[in-house]
Every structure is written in structure tokens, then in C-alpha cells.
Amino acid sequence: MQVVWDNIGLLLIGLRSTLILSAVTVVSGSAVGLLGGVGLLFGPLPVRGLLRAYVDIVRGLPLLVLIFFIFYGLPAIGLDVRGFEAGALALSLFAGAHVSEIVRGGINAVPKGQIDAAKALGLTFWPRLAWVVFPQAAPSMLPPWINVVVEMVKGTSLVVLVSVNDLLFAATKVAERTANPMPLYLAAAALYFVVNFAISRSGAWLERRLSYG
């Protein structure tokens, strides 16, 4: 374990990249998912069809396959994406598809009467969504969304397979320098655990708050 303490600074720098990549992914994935979920429910037929295809295809693929497809595939059609961009794009598309389904389900679960009442008050589509539907859908969307966040943090570990400088890659680099990989993998696992445990605990806390409010 000495090898871990000697190199903890480098591991933490790797952890920072993982957190940045996760944040980028969660933010962009949630934005995509928000639009995607609304589009799935209220979009014109062709939009609905396209979104359904996107969501079902991405959800039917392993994340690793998506990452490889983008990392190796885009250069083959002439777009030279780097590992980080390929990883962020793949993870965002993946998160977007899953969040779309969450948003769709959340909005669907809001009682129809609420929407009718908002219509009666003269609210147009977007304000209706933003002020009436969404606040009521949020509590039911939170737990699965937290799950997606944890899955994305874990998912970032796959970008090591396309040489992105994340936590696992940092651990791998130290492992190659010291020729002693196992303690470093264990340390990386512990760091992932700490981050994800903190996220899921704060999610549970937020859930309780929301359910009382």
C-alpha cells in the first residue's frame, strides 16, 4: 500500500479529471434528456420517431461499444476526435438516452388534471411544463436520476480503454512506473466508492427533503 501513499497526489489529479468528465456528461446528458423526454411526449410525429430510435438504440447498446464506436468510428469518417471528446460524447449520449426515459416517465406520472387546470389558467405549453408539470414530476425523477449520475461516474472508468487521462488511467500510469498494479487498482476502486457513495447518500437525503416538502 506504500505505493499508493507515495502517489496519492497523482491519483487525486486523475480523480479530478474523472469528476470533470462526469460533470460534463451529467450536465449535457441531462440537458439532452430533458429535451428528449419532452420531445418523446409532445414532439411532432417524426421528432417522436427519431427520439424513440435514439433512446432505444443507445439504451440497447453497451456503453463500452458506444465509446469504441465513436472513438474509432468518427476518425474513419474524417473527424479526428481525441479520447476525451469521444468519451464525453459517448457518455453524454448514453446519459441523454437514459434521462430522456426518466423525464418521459416523470412527466407521464403527473396527474392529467393538473395539466388541464394549468390550461384553464391560460398557461401556454412551456410555462405549463416549467411551472406546473415539472415541479411535480421532479420528486419521482430524482431517484432514477441519481442512479444515472452514479452510473455515469462509474461509466467514466471505461474511457481508460481509449487512453483518456481519468482516475483509472492515472492509476494505470503509476502502476506501470512502479510495476505494481494491484494496490493502485484497489485505491482507484476506493476513490470511486467514496465519490459514488457520497452522491447516492446526498441523493437519498435530497429525496427525503423533497418528499416532505
Partner: peptide, 20 residues
């Protein structure tokens, strides 16, 4: 050597597929 090999492989794809 090293992880660079992965990128090199990918570059092979570029040079063979597209010659750029």
C-alpha cells in the same frame, strides 16, 4: 510502447481508410 500504441492503431485506420 505504452498506451500510445492504441492511438497508433487508430492512426493506422486513418491512413489505410482515408490516406490522411
Amino acid at each position: 510502447a505504452g498506451a500510445d500504441r492504441l492511438r497508433a492503431n487508430r492512426r493506422r485506420v486513418l491512413t489505410q481508410g482515408l490516406v490522411i
